[in-house]
Computed example of a mutant assay.
Amino acid sequence: MNNRYAYDLTQVKNTLKGHDDLVEYCDAIDRLGFALSTLTELQDAALALDAIAEIHKDPEALQVVSAGLMTHAIMAYCRATHSDGRGRKKIGATKKYTPDQKKKHKNIADLRNEVIAHFGIPTQGHGLKWLDERVVVKVVDDAEIYSFSRIRANALAATIADLRELLAASTATAEEVMEERANSLNELNLKHISDQRVIDALNASPFDPYAFYGLGQLADDFWDVTQKKRSETLRNGEW
């Protein structure tokens, strides 16, 4: 017997959010979603660093793709721990950082803000070592030519080491927050288990991975309940 099913809690929340007496329940779904989304971003960053390590002995691949992977790792980490976007509230992934880790976090954020995402003026740590640009005038015989010389890092070992340390700490905290919020949602599920509005919203919100991802391995993998398994999959192609 194939006893498996899933509910789209995001859709359930959207259905119920107009009921004042279910605000706590809807907020609990949101709060768990923020934690899961943040944890996934931290996993994204770690996977990018893993990929850099895998291609480290291939100079051509390292030259071509390491900059993109490093950019992705830094941006994903900062989205999870630093950015103040309206779409997702922070979960406090950095709240257990030591003073030294807080300093390293500021250095990564400065690198993201002043070098990776914008052309600014880095003031500390990795950003100061990432980019060096010079306007040069060169004179060869009777020719005087202005030229531009630049050294830009693809990935720096010290940056990777700091980011690895920060990811380990922030991921552990995010997992704790996720567990706490999952337990809170479980309690509210029990509280509202007999509420017909909740029952109707759940019944109207089945989640079909084959409709979401399309047929294939991605949808098949959705049903894998391995502990600590990455909770989302990515697909390529047109949307």
Score class of each variant (00 low, 15 high):
Arg4Leu: 11
Arg4Ser: 12
Tyr5Lys: 15
Ala6Asn: 09
Ala6Ser: 09
Leu9His: 11
Gln11Thr: 15
Asn14His: 01
Thr15Pro: 02
Lys17His: 12
Gly18Leu: 11
His19Glu: 14
Tyr25Trp: 03
Tyr25Met: 05
Asp27His: 05
Ala28Ile: 02
Ile29Gln: 06
Arg31Cys: 10
Leu32Asp: 02
Ala35Asp: 06
Glu41Tyr: 13
Glu41Phe: 14
Leu42Gly: 05
Ala46Asn: 03
Ala48His: 09
Ala51Arg: 13
Ile52Met: 13
Ile52Phe: 04
Glu54Met: 12
Glu54Gln: 10
Asp58Val: 08
Pro59Ala: 14
His72Pro: 00
Tyr77Pro: 01
Thr81Gln: 01
His82Leu: 08
His82Trp: 15
Ser83Lys: 15
Ser83Thr: 11
Asp84Val: 13
Gly85Lys: 07
Ile91Thr: 01
Gly92Lys: 06
Ala93Leu: 04
Thr94Gly: 05
Lys96Arg: 09
Lys96Gly: 00
Thr98Trp: 03
Asp100Asn: 08
Gln101Asp: 09
His105Pro: 01
Asn107Lys: 10
Asn107Leu: 04
Ala109Lys: 03
Asp110Met: 06
Arg112Phe: 07
Val115Gln: 04
Val115Phe: 07
Ala117Arg: 02
Ala117Ser: 07
Phe119Ser: 07
Ile121His: 06
Pro122Cys: 06
Gln124Ala: 12
Gln124Cys: 09
His126Asp: 04
Leu128Gln: 02
Trp130Gly: 00
Leu131His: 11
Ala143Gln: 10
Ala143Pro: 00
Ala143Thr: 05
Tyr146Leu: 14
Ser147Asn: 12
Arg150Pro: 00
Arg152Ile: 04
Ala153Cys: 08
Ala158Lys: 00
Ile160Arg: 08
Ala161Thr: 07
Arg164Phe: 06
Glu165Ser: 05
Ala169Asp: 10
Ala169Tyr: 12
Ser170Asp: 11
Ala172Arg: 05
Val177Glu: 03
Arg181Thr: 02
Asn186Gly: 00
Glu187Lys: 08
Ile193Cys: 06
Ile193His: 01
Arg197Tyr: 06
Asp200Phe: 08
Leu202Ser: 07
Asn203Phe: 08
Asn203Asp: 11
Ala204Arg: 13
Ala204Trp: 09
Ser205Gly: 02
Pro206Ile: 12
Phe212Leu: 08
Phe212Glu: 14
Leu215Gly: 08
Leu215Ser: 13
Gly216Lys: 13
Gln217Leu: 15
Asp220Gly: 06
Asp221Ala: 03
Trp223Arg: 06
Trp223Val: 13
Thr226Tyr: 08
Lys228Phe: 10
Lys228Ala: 15
Arg230Ile: 01
Leu234Cys: 08
Leu234Ala: 15
Asn236Gly: 12
Asn236Ser: 04
Gly237Tyr: 12
Gly237Trp: 13
Gly237Lys: 11
Glu238Thr: 15
Trp239Ile: 15
